Simulated assay, not measured.
Amino acid sequence: MRGGPYLLLLVAGTLGVGRGLDGQLGSPCHPSGRCNVRFSECQDNICRCSGTGVPSAYNNRCLPVADGLKGYCEENVQCTVPHSHCRRFSKECECVEGYVMARDRSVCLPVSRLGEPCLERAQCKESTECSPSLGVCVCRGISYEYDGKCVTDHISNNWELTVVTVSPAAGSQLLAHNRWLLCIALAALVHAGVR
């Protein structure tokens, strides 16, 4: 009676050949057999998705690879662009946090800050833009760098207006000797919106 279980085991093993033993991708198969999962085939004695298909998270379906960023998806595995994932509600591949989509939708580029490398304007954050000639994020428009940030009103925020009463003689003497200082002070006041 010792031979019975061996014979039974051999028969059960033979019946399972050619179909994925557990019906999921990644299970053993026979090269001349077929796999149970739709759009899968036996490759190197393992059930795998055919062509460009990718296995689902539970390994029970073959899903098509998404057509790049903004392509339709059901699961993250379909989004093959590095640093992308499947957005749950829109069912589109998008860049993960900390990355932005390139204009041509082909790659996810890292978000850059002032002085950091960039290829496109969308990468630059915090009032910066990408300088094509420098390849780094620089302050946008009339803003300028101060203390590691882009500012537009540094002077008006840090200057105080002090009103001093001066006699006409002292005032003309001050004007004659410090004409350049007065011009700077007036420019700061105009920039600050004081009239």
Rank of each mutant, 00 (worst) to 15 (best):
R38V: 11
Q78L: 00
A66N: 08
G71H: 03
W159F: 08
G23W: 02
V138S: 09
R48A: 11
C95H: 05
G115S: 08
C29W: 05
A192E: 05
E116I: 03
V81F: 02
H177R: 14
R195I: 04
Q78I: 01
G141R: 13
G51Q: 08
H154G: 02
N178F: 14
I142H: 11
H177G: 13
V107Q: 09
C137H: 12
E94A: 10
C95Q: 06
T162A: 06
F39T: 13
S56I: 02
L15H: 08
V11P: 04
L182I: 14
C150G: 11
C47I: 05
E160T: 09
C35L: 07
L189N: 07
P110T: 13
V166F: 01
A187G: 12
A57G: 04
R34C: 06
G71K: 05
A188L: 00
G51N: 11
Y146Q: 13
V54G: 03
G98S: 06
E41F: 00
R38G: 05
S40R: 06
A192Y: 04
L10W: 08
Q43I: 14
S127D: 15
R105M: 08
G98I: 06
V17Q: 14
G193S: 09
R87A: 09
S32L: 15
L63C: 04
G4V: 13
L63T: 10
Y58R: 12
V111E: 11
E94Y: 07
A102D: 07
L114E: 04
L161M: 03
R48K: 15
L10P: 03
V190R: 09
D153S: 10
S172Q: 13
L7W: 10
P64K: 11
C183D: 14
T165G: 05
T128Y: 07
R140K: 12
C29R: 09
R38W: 10
P132H: 13
P28E: 08
K70M: 05
A169P: 01
R87M: 01
S56Y: 00
R103L: 06
H191N: 14
T52M: 07
R61G: 00
P28T: 11
D44E: 14
E41T: 10
P132Y: 07
E92N: 07
H177N: 15
E41A: 15
G141L: 08
V111N: 00
R179S: 15
M101D: 03
T52W: 12
F39E: 15
L182W: 04
L21R: 09
V11R: 11
D153H: 14
H191E: 15
E120W: 02
S56F: 01
R48W: 02
C79A: 03
V54Q: 03
H83Q: 08
A170M: 00
L15A: 14
R140L: 06
M101R: 09
L119M: 05
H154W: 10
G33Y: 06
K91P: 00
E160N: 09
A122T: 03
C108Y: 06
E120V: 02
I142K: 12
N45K: 14
G141K: 14
S172E: 14
G193P: 07
